[in-house]
């Protein structure tokens, strides 16, 4: 084996020296050629804007005239603004409702779907359809379903004697309403992930547990969930990041005049940047969002060793 791999290497050395350019230089040039489109993209549309955003976060600038250095002024203003504080709380509340709700319901569905047999593709079609639909269309449908006067949902609730809240107007119900829509739309993604994860668990593990006399519940807790823990970790990281960035539904529901009870971090960023043209404050808030996301993800990765089980 070693002679087999050594042979091409020797040939390569011979070949490149014949052409008069070192192998290493040729490789670097080839790599640059293959990487060039994405490198241009990385520089122009990611690293450049990031540096620019950092500069903006420390300046006072409305897009016109000259910018002035603002120090930590933007950060201080963002952190002390009670409206933004409320928006942060709303976002956290939304995440607390949506992330566990989404994960538990899609996990239960994935378990049930394992035994669905021939009907699987029919059920899956219904459960995944909202995922391929644009969030604007989704929000337009729910705008109606949340309208307490004409919604068939509140009508059905009323017929069994429950007064349905005015979801989008009631400060106590507007964030749960967002969570309901987000769970409805996000279920398909996690369902597909969990089903793929369940499929990759070899039946040998479950059969072994069965032979040891494990009940269905014991199998679930001691075999299935530990073996799915990498999927659970991946989904919890990505869904928290996603839920911290909720924006589309709110904008479709409320346009640019959402009440304080319905605003979230990204909604604030967009309003501050593109309504008030306070690029500095908006960038400062966006940086704080990035830092919190990095912090939360780092925390999740730090504690993963205690509960995530990687099958060898």
């Amino acid at each position: 084996m070693s002679t087999l791999t050594a042979a091409p290497a020797q040939a390569r050395v011979a070949q490149s020296s014949r052409r008069g350019m070192s192998r290493r230089r040729k490789d670097t040039i080839a790599a640059l050629v293959f990487l060039s489109p994405q490198l241009v993209g990385l520089a122009a549309f990611m690293v450049g804007p990031l540096v620019f955003a950092l500069v903006l976060a420390f300046s006072d600038w409305d897009g016109f005239g000259t910018a002035a250095f603002a120090g930590f002024g933007n950060f201080a203003e963002v952190l002390s603004n009670p409206r933004i504080q409320r928006s942060v709380l709303n976002t956290v509340w939304f995440t607390a409702l949506q992330v566990p709700g989404l994960m538990i319901s899609s996990f239960v569905f994935a378990l049930l779907m394992q035994k669905a047999g021939k009907m699987l593709s029919v059920y899956r079609l219904c459960l995944v359809a909202p995922l391929v639909t644009s969030s604007v269309a989704v929000a337009a449908i729910w705008l109606w379903l949340f309208n307490s006067e004409i919604s068939p949902v509140s009508n059905a609730l009323r017929s069994i004697g429950i007064q349905s809240p005015d979801w989008l107007q009631d400060p106590n119900f507007v964030i749960p309403a967002f969570a309901i829509v987000a769970i409805w739309q996000g279920l398909g993604y996690q369902l597909v992930m969990f089903m793929a994860g369940l499929q990759s668990i070899g039946s040998s593990f479950l059969e072994a547990a069965e032979l040891d006399g494990c009940s269905g519940w014991q199998k679930l807790v001691h075999v299935t969930i530990p073996l799915l823990s990498p999927t659970i970790l991946f989904l919890s990281i990505t869904s928290i990041i996603g839920s911290f960035q909720i924006f589309d539904y709110i904008y479709v529901f409320m346009d640019s005049n959402a009440p304080e009870a319905a605003r979230t971090i990204v909604y604030e960023i967009v309003q501050i940047a593109f309504r008030e043209f306070n690029f500095g404050q908006a960038s400062a808030l966006a940086f704080l969002l990035l830092l919190s996301l990095l912090g939360i993800t780092a925390l999740q990765l730090a504690v993963q060793k205690r509960w995530v089980h990687y099958a060898e």
């Binding site: 990611m46 690293v47 955003a53 903006l56 924006f247 966006a286 969002l289």
Partner: peptide, 22 residues
Amino acid sequence: VFLATMMVPAQLTIIPLYIIMG
């Protein structure tokens, strides 16, 4: 660097991008 950029929320770069596009 490529991996790390996946953590960056779109809302952070959209403000400078908007100015650059201008």
